[in-house]
Amino acid sequence: MFKLHYKLERRAIGLTLAIIGAASIGGIVEIAPLFTIDETVEAAPDMRVYTPLELAGRNIYMREGCYACHSQMIRTLKDDVDRYGHYSLAVESKYDHPMLWGSKRTGPDIARLGGKYSDEWHVRHLINPRDVVPVSIMPAYGWLMERTLRMDDLSGQLAAQRAVGVPYTGEMIANAAADAYGQANPDSNASAAVAERYGEATNVRTFDGNAQRLTEMDALVAYLQILGNLVDVNQKTAAAETE
């Protein structure tokens, strides 16, 4: 084996062909499954896209580097499932650009965080994590309560997502700013339209506890509260087991 390697090193063309052959094998192994992606990623007719407010919160989540400490993919390992909940399904990341699966857990996985804690808990946790988790080493993000959410670019954000395959309609894009405001202000005239466009199960409430302003805290909490709730994983699993 080693003698063959020595011989190849003395022949540039032979070594080049061997490298191409080895790289081709690796490439085929990685690329071939993509041709059957439609068969391996299950359909989810009940799944909806992110609302403008949730998408803005996701962008803030990425901006602040939260993905560096929190993964969003529960493995099929028993320890993972026992601690974090049902393992992640491929379809749950269907509208995620980019994916935020992660591979490092300085903090817990948050793929099923939505609905686990109240909005107030999340606000307190983001303002000062030690108030609710004394041993937490997470930095504080109190300024999110003071920063007004930028809304003039929300339509552009939805349009960019549609360009990569997320099925936002023209109506959703045109009303992005109004829908973001309405989702965090249940008493406003714009709130009813949010449920009409994104479904009755959409969270419509004052996420940061202050209806007077739409803040970055509203957006981030709205995003955290939807994680794991875009698809009924238990229903999907039961359906798969009966097929």
Rank of each mutant, 00 (worst) to 15 (best):
G65E: 12
A140P: 01
G65V: 03
I19H: 06
G209R: 06
S71I: 00
I173C: 03
K3L: 01
G115S: 06
L227Q: 10
D153E: 05
A111L: 03
E241W: 01
N229D: 03
V135D: 06
N59I: 00
V221T: 07
A22V: 15
V91C: 11
A219S: 00
D179L: 12
A140W: 05
K116Q: 06
A32H: 08
R105S: 03
K3R: 01
Q183I: 07
A56T: 08
G107A: 11
F2Y: 14
G65W: 05
R197L: 02
T215G: 09
A192L: 11
P52D: 12
I74R: 04
S93E: 05
P52T: 07
A177T: 04
S24Y: 12
E42A: 14
A190N: 10
Y141E: 02
R63S: 15
H86Q: 14
A238R: 05
V194P: 12
E200R: 13
K3Q: 07
A32D: 10
L55G: 01
V123R: 11
I28G: 04
H70P: 06
L55E: 13
V233S: 03
S71K: 09
D82C: 05
G199M: 04
S118G: 08
D218Y: 00
V221P: 03
P33H: 08
Y84K: 02
Y95Q: 04
M62C: 07
P134G: 07
E9T: 11
H97Q: 12
A177D: 07
I19N: 09
Y61M: 05
A177Q: 10
L77D: 06
V135H: 10
E64S: 05
A12E: 15
G156Y: 03
A239T: 01
Q161K: 12
G228A: 11
S191F: 08
T237P: 00
L214I: 10
A12C: 03
R124M: 07
M1Y: 06
R130E: 13
L126D: 05
T40V: 13
A174P: 06
E54H: 09
A32C: 05
M217A: 12
A56H: 02
H5R: 04
V91A: 10
D46E: 15
R213M: 06
R63Q: 15
D152C: 10
I173P: 05
G114D: 08
D46P: 10
T36S: 10
A192G: 04
Y117E: 15
H97A: 15
Q157W: 11
